[in-house]
Design a protein around this nucleic acid. Structure first.
Lengths: 115, 115
DNA sequence: GATACCTGTATCCAAAAGGATACTTGATTT
DNA sequence: AAATCAAGTATCCTTTTGGATACAGGTATC
């Protein structure tokens, strides 16, 4: 593999890492929902219609492992859990904003193309 | 649904549109490979180890439908096809670059966190 | 007439992602 | 003693995505 090919592979890998963190059907809705003030498991679940417990649970773990949200155990009764977005997650702004604006332009472009 | 919730849904939809265009295992490697000079089906196929014909064919169609590459029939013998990236595809730079740099920072962050 | 070249398709299969539904745990109120 | 609540787990199933392999179809060379 040439040096050039290697840089190329690293570029792809970095982009795919980003997609791994944000990709799939639910990660963005969950992050934005917590950011919007929902802290508890059932609050988040209710705020996002149709997500199941199993999937929400898995995604919360994924987001926690990737340092985007924090899980805090509050030890009164019944034991409550609070999820909050981390400061680190705010760094995603720099990637989410371009994705949002490109996605909007693209949708328009594609629907224009079919007329 | 409040106005706020609606804006929220549109934001998510736009981001997911971007992911739909770029997501999956092969789309980026294919775009970058064509951008890097591979024009013919078999060239692209050879440049990307392990991709199968079936998958390459499907992904090329997807990328063409999304206006990122152009398919040109060259009526020689045997009929050749050339794929090139479109000018429109260059607009992706604005979303790919942040994804790349965030992905790199994130990989470092995650590996530091586990020490 | 067999063979090779090129750009795919066709068929079948495996793995990953996501969904439905019921259940757990353990203190507390009824 | 039964019911309740929060935050998930457990089990099983469906859908989506990707992979393996063979082969088509038209021309041109051997």
């Amino acid at each position: 593999m040439t040096r050039e090919e290697k840089r190329f592979q690293e570029k792809i890998k970095a982009i795919q890492d980003t997609m791994f963190v944000l990709g799939g059907k639910w990660k963005l809705p969950i992050i934005l929902s917590i950011y919007g003030g929902n802290k508890r498991f059932n609050d988040i679940s209710n705020a996002i219609p149709k997500i199941t417990n199993r999937v929400l649970s898995k995604e919360l773990k994924h987001l926690e492992e990737n340092l985007l949200i924090k899980r805090t155990v509050i030890d009164d009764y019944p034991v409550r859990i609070e999820y909050t977005v981390t400061d680190y997650a705010f760094g995603l702004e720099e990637v989410i904003k371009p994705m949002e604006s490109w996605g909007k332009k693209h949708r328009k472009r594609i629907s224009d193309a079919s007329r």
